[in-house]
Structure formats: C-alpha cells, structure tokens
Design a protein around this nucleic acid. Structure first.
Lengths: 349, 349
DNA sequence: CTGAAAGCGCTTACAG
DNA sequence: CTGAAAGCGCTTACAG
C-alpha cells in the first residue's frame, strides 16, 4: 500500500466483470443492463434476451455493495428474535435460508433481549445503518407494537410471526397455536380424561394465551371444562414445569392428564411425576407442544403438537422477497397445518 | 418514482450526516475524517480529537455500504457450518455475536452440506460476491483442507475451529476434545470400572478421533486398556447410539460403563439399557460429551463433558476482528477449559 | 501529518 | 423503449 492505515490487503485484483463490460458486449448502455438486472418491464424483449445471454456467458453477478449504495438499501434480511429455544431458532433460520437460498440476499442475525431497555433502539440503529431489505420478527418480540412502529417510522419492511394476526395481512404470518391446543384437548377428551390440568406459558406471551384458549375451547366442545384450579402459569422453562406440575400433583384431586404449553415444561412434568411416584402414562398422561427433539428421546416418548416452524420461516421470507411482485399468495403463505404427534405419554383412563 | 422498475420505496430522505458534513464542521478534508474513522496513526492527536468530538456530537456512523464498495470488502462475518446440533449452532452463534456486539460487523449464516458436490463452490461464490471480512468454520467443514485452500485462493480471511490444530495458529481455534475425553476416562477409572465401552463418532470427524484417543490415553494412565471389541463406531446420532449400545450390551462380557462420543448417542444408550433391562447407574454407568440441555433433563441426569462452545465462538470472532491490530493474544484465545459435569448416570462398581 | 482528484460499481433523475 | 450525466458515501493512489 502506498499510503497508510488499513491493514487488510485488498481483495485480489481479478479484474471482475462489471456492468460496463456487459453493456459494451451487448452494445447497449449501462442503464439498459441495469434494467435487465432489475427486471424492469421497460426493455424490448429482444434486447433483454441478448443481455441475459451475455450475463449468463460471462457469469456476471452484480456487485451487491454497489447496488446497496445506489439503492440506499442492502441485501440483508434481518432475523430479530428473543426465543431462547435453540430448536426453534435453528428451524426458523433453516426455513428462512430455504427461501433465501442462493439469491443475493443474506440472513443476518439480530438476537435481542426485551429486558434490555435499549433493545428497540439497537434494532433501530441496525436498520438505519444497514438498511436491510426487510426484517423478520418472531415471538415474543414480534408482539411488541412499539417496535413495529419504529420499523414503520424508519420505512423498513417487515414480517411479524405470531400466534394470531397482529398486523396487516401482508406483514403477518400466523402460527395457529390455538388450533394445535384444540387438537391436544380433543386427544385427551377422547381418551376419557375428565380432570385435566394445564400449565400455560407466561401471560406476556401471546402464544401462551392462544394455547390456553384453544385448549379450553377444545375441551368445551367435548363438554368438558378447564378447571381454574387446575390451570397454572409456568414460564416456558423446564424448572417452571417441574414446580407447576408439583403443585398440581400434590392436590388431593390431582388431574389424570396434564397439557403443558411447551415441551420444555412437559419434560418438567415428567420429573414432578417421578418424584410424586406416578407412572407415565398409567397414572398420568402428558401432552406437550413443539415436538422438540427431546420429546422423542425421553422415556416414555412424549405426545406433543408439532408446529411447522421451518415452513413458517420459509413463508415469512417469501413474503418479504415477493413483496410487490404480485406473485405472493397471502392465503397460501399463511395457512399452516399443525399436527398432533401421538407417542407413549398418553393413555385412556 | 419518475422512471421505472424498482418497486420498493427508497429509504426515508432523512438527510443523513455524511463524512463531508463532518469534514466541513471539523475544518479538515474528507480524507482526514476517513483516517480518524479507520484509526490511522497518521493524524495529529489534536486533529483526531476534534474530529472525534464532532463525530460524537452528530452521532455520525459511516455508511457501511459505501465503505464496503470502496474497500472492496464488506462488513459481514460468515459462519460456515454443517453441525446438525441446534444447541451447538446456537451457542456458536451466540459466542460470535458476543464479540461482534454493536460493531459494524454483521453475522451472516452459511449452512452447508458436505454431501452436496457443489458445496465448496457455493462458499466460493458467497465470498466472491459478498467479500466478507472473514469466515468462521466449524467442524466438520472446518476440517476440509480443500475448502481452506479455496479461501486462501480468494484471499478471504478465516478461522478454523477444530479439535486439533489444522492450520497456522492465527487461523486456528482448538477445542481440546482429547483432554475432555481424558477427564471422562479418569472419572470412570476412579469409580473402579474395568470393562469400559466407547461409542465414538464417525471416523470422518476429527473430533471422533480426538475423543477416542483422549479416552484411550486417559484409561491407560490408570493402567486400563480400551478393549477393541468394546469400541464401536456410531454416527453422532441418537439412533446410532441406540444400535451401537445394543450391540455392546448384548455381549456376554458387557461393559459396566459406556462413554459415548456425544450426548445424542449417550441418550441412545439410555434407551438400549432400558430395553436390555439394565438400570442406570446401578448396572451401567454412562458418560456423554457436550452437556446439551437434554443431559440435565433426562433421568437419571447424565454425567457429561462440557465444552465451552460459546467461548470458542467468541474467541474465533476476536481472532478475526483483531487481526493485525497487534492486540490479539493467541495463547489466551486458544486455551479453553473443558469441564466434567458429574450427575447421576455414573456410580462406582 | 494533510488534501484534491479519481474511483469503487451500481442506480436515480432527467431527457428523448 | 433507451441513454448520458450525476450521484450514492466512502477509500485509494498520488502528491506535497
């Protein structure tokens, strides 16, 4: 380096093909090449074809840094999340990456902590600085209306994933948790259980509310009532599952079945049952939610509700990428099938 | 839009502060401001201070897209991985993000599949197109010498995380798996076990080899031998743990303890033991490796080796960011303490 | 130690 | 439907 500072060597000078080379080879202007790249309809079909051929021959790919600078918008898609479950996070990432694939778009991770007072401002600075193409929000941050307002203020496109519709349809992906909980209720009702307990997640999570109300209405359609004294609040954690279940199982009128709001807590119920000397499923049936890997590895294998997280991630990214292309089919992108996975933790009374 | 195509609106025209504004306010040239931003030593202390003050006052942050274009190098750090364990992946991401924090650098995900013939070329196109600041490779892709060669060819900086040193020290982070396996061996030997089985990972993984040889030498230092007939190869999966353990436990001279190469397989050993009618730890002691969440939730809780994945991720990112700053301390960045977590799956014979 | 000019590779704004 | 000019906000290369 002739001058100073920057320590890292510049990338190899493999005289890269640029839009100028393509323009010259096709005998058109840069702008026309640019139009082809950006799929403008305002190019004669013949011209477009020629340019496309040359692009294919040369293997040219437009420089994303240059495009980002000119567009004032980068090719990053930000995932803003606070869900602590590794399985959930990884599945979501996989789904988004399925859609992003080998496009120019890159997935950038932005974990956050709602406990941090500045968390919203951190998201804002990310947006202002990096001008992402869009943001995908998962529960529970997706439920933060103030954050959504900030994104709108900064004119950043986004999609909110949640258990119910929180925003306009084009910015929402619903996960239909209530429906999954209904399936759990039907299963237990059909097995003849009457005294059924439920450990729901923290009330600050919409999913906890949706699963609770879905479970309740599911029981009601079988003429059963979800007894208030058998409905307790957990924290979606293993430990809270243990303590909540211990409370339920210590009652003289203990339930014969417990539906836990997620698998983590369901596994906690196993521990509480063992401590109480109860056999699963002979003395206690257990249903979880999420179908995390542990549900198939624990003994006995856990009956649980599978939520198609990866598909949800795929759909969220689709929504972002297809925006305005007219090809998005909101209906299709927003209908997910939950599934009850019946294993060996449930049995008829 | 006056002309055509691009559907998304340009970002808000909040006349953003640029390097020109800062230069004007400080009464210096753009280049001098640039020098301050890039921490060039070639600026008079007084000038630097003044510029820094103005930067702080205005809240100016240099535009990463513009810098990337001019530098021919982006502010992305790519994580290239193929490890299927969600827990591992998430911990690694967390560690890297700990270091990246609120810097201009962003973490970009590049999962890959070594089964895919083109996987190396996909990594190459990512690099050529996005010109990342650096790449972090985790096992097993980190062990692919051909891939490393491609990165060097493209002059892309990288750090390889592996259970042994595969590259020059400044591009390596060692995880010392052998040492962890030695601790497992010592633990079982001290409990008086003599007939000890080992289910190791696939031979294509260096970690499998390291854990095996560490375990063997650990036993040897207690005068014990790892019997070849009690050493079987698994696939690091739950199912392979079940089948490998079944084979070991069906022997008439079955082992009194099994060390599994990871927790996934260790959990498989639980299932095989249950099927064989063996109690844990009364009839069989089990030790795992990784300390994944399931190890504390399964019954009885699993004794396992904890590998500080998050710290490893932190160190890898440190190595990348501090490159050339002279402040990196290779020694320190590469010494990790593994820890044996003794739970209830092991007992003396 | 500092600066004026040219350039990174694209797109926008305008004109035809 | 197409193009020449200006610009995105920085850094490099050169000069002093």
């Amino acid at each position: 380096m002739s001058d100073d500072e920057h320590e890292s060597k510049p990338a190899r000078d493999r005289s890269q093909v640029t839009i100028i080379d393509i323009a010259r080879m096709a005998g058109v202007s840069k702008k026309t090449v640019s139009r082809v790249i950006n799929e403008s309809p305002l190019v004669r079909e013949e011209t477009r074809k020629k340019v496309k051929e040359i692009i294919a021959e040369t293997g040219f790919t437009p420089n994303p840094q240059a495009r980002a600078l000119a567009f004032r918008k980068s090719f990053l898609v930000g995932l803003v999340y606070d869900n602590p479950s590794p399985q959930y996070v990884v599945n979501m990432q996989r789904g988004i990456l399925d859609t992003l694939g080998d496009t120019a778009f890159q997935l950038v991770l932005r974990p956050c902590d709602r406990g941090d007072e500045n968390y919203r401002e951190r998201v804002r600075s990310f947006i202002v600085q990096h001008k992402p193409h869009g943001i995908i929000l998962t529960p529970s941050v997706s439920e933060d209306e103030t954050l959504a307002e900030i994104l709108r203020e900064e004119e950043c496109d986004y999609v909110r994933i949640a258990s119910l519709e929180l925003d306009v349809p084009s910015r929402s992906i619903r996960t239909h948790d209530a429906q999954g909980a209904e399936m759990a209720a039907a299963h237990l009702a059909q097995l003849g259980h009457k005294r059924i307990g439920h450990i729901h997640g923290p009330k600050t999570f919409r999913s906890a509310h949706e699963r609770l109300s879905g479970f309740r209405s599911g029981l009601e359609s079988y003429g059963l009532e979800l007894a208030p004294e058998l409905t307790v609040e957990g924290a979606y954690t293993f430990d809270s599952g243990v303590s909540s279940a211990t409370r339920l199982l210590n009652r003289r009128d203990r339930p014969t079945a417990i539906f836990a709001g997620n698998d983590e807590m369901a596994v906690g119920v196993y521990v509480a049952a063992r401590k109480a000397g109860l056999r699963i499923p002979e003395d206690l049936s257990i249903v979880g939610f999420d179908d995390t890997p542990i549900s198939a590895r624990i003994w006995p294998p856990l009956t649980t509700v599978r939520s198609p997280i990866r598909e949800v991630g795929r759909a969220a990214a689709d929504l972002l990428l297809k925006r305005g292309s007219g090809s998005e089919n909101l209906e299709e992108l927003q209908s997910f099938q939950l599934e009850l996975i019946v294993r060996e933790s449930t049995r008829s009374v």
